[in-house]
Amino acid sequence: MKNQPNENNMDSRMQRRSANQQGPKQPKQHGTRRWHPWRWFWGIIILLLLVIVGFGAVAYHNINSATSKAYKSAGITKARDTKAVLNSKKPISILFLGTDTGALGRSYKGRTDTIMIATINPQTKKMLLVSLPRDTMTDIAGYPDESPAKINAAYAYGGVGTTIKTVQNLLNVPIDYYALLNMGGLEKAINEVGGVTVTSPLSFSYEGSTFEKGQTYHMNGATALKFSRMRYDDPQGDYGRQTRQRLVVEALFRKSIAVQTVLNSSFLNSISSQSQTDLTNSDLVKLAQNYRSATKNISSDHMQGQGQMINGQSFEVVGHSEKQRVTNELRTSLDLSAKTDE
């Protein structure tokens, strides 16, 4: 393995690179990381769009307007013909990404500190969500001189396209579509649906709010973000935070599928202004027509790494057997034949 540069050295190298090839300029880190929520919340909006068929022309108009604003190509050739997959009603995969921008005064490009793969299988009527640790050590697709690095740096180096290729290379799984949300959108969305109800899995206090294990709380957007932010006092660290993030998003999904939410153009526009995806309106209609039943049976998992300090940086190093387990799980959910990771 090549010597891994620390993040400051990587930032300086990226700044020099940008002068010559318009590569991304990695911003300075601003102190302790305060929160890396489930900015893949746009995935909840995608799921919300699956109810479009049932709610008629007004819902379609609102959704069409919102998703048109959010569309942006990944800028790469996909691993397979995604239109053919969707037209033939085969299982699809969506990569959910979240960035640091949009709140807490952040306006730089940032990294994708939330990374999740979703598979939707209309035949088995099941949906799978798998979280990838943001500090997973891996090679960045197209950037051999910068590899190995943390997987969340792929977005800073080369954008969504590089992130998709990096995830595909890591797990040997095709990524059909992506959806990205910056953290400025989540609080707005929670407030738009009237808050979310969540039961805390542990007791802790954070930024003036206190939560008790086993107690159920109705949270507004600000409180839900606090519930999702805390990491250092969780015995499970970032993995525990991922669990709380899942609780918030699942609660938000339950509220989002209501008819009044689908018809709420303010809600949809607040999300679309903070998001981007390469799912077109016609893609979403196909999802609504053929994949909706799968969202009623959602399971979740995460890829488990082991924390290691390498050249002054903290990484999550994922063993071969764990990576193969996740690959098998995802490929099975996509009805694809087994493949052995290197």
Rank of each mutant, 00 (worst) to 15 (best):
I92M: 00
T216Q: 06
L171Q: 01
L287I: 12
A19P: 00
Q236N: 12
G214P: 10
D234E: 01
V326Y: 09
P148Q: 11
N297S: 09
I164H: 00
G102H: 01
A149Y: 14
S273R: 11
I63P: 10
Q123D: 14
A103H: 14
G214V: 01
E187G: 09
S200Q: 04
R134G: 04
L247P: 02
L132I: 15
A59T: 06
I175S: 07
T138F: 02
N3E: 15
A251P: 06
P144M: 05
L336N: 01
N297C: 09
S266V: 10
K28S: 11
N297M: 09
T77W: 03
A338N: 14
I115C: 00
F315P: 01
R111P: 04
N121H: 00
L171T: 04
G184I: 04
N64Q: 11
I44Q: 10
T280Q: 01
S300D: 11
P5F: 14
L129C: 10
D113A: 02
R231Y: 04
Q304P: 08
D139W: 10
I46W: 06
Y232I: 14
T332K: 08
E146S: 13
T277R: 00
F211A: 01
Y206N: 03
E342I: 13
R106G: 12
R111G: 07
T67N: 09
I257C: 04
G31C: 06
K339R: 11
T162Y: 01
G312H: 10
V196I: 05
Q324E: 10
T243D: 14
R331C: 02
A251F: 08
T136E: 00
V193A: 07
G159W: 09
H218I: 02
I117S: 08
T112I: 12
N191E: 00
G208F: 11
S300Q: 15
G161R: 00
L181R: 06
Q242E: 11
R17F: 14
Y239A: 10
L181F: 08
I151F: 01
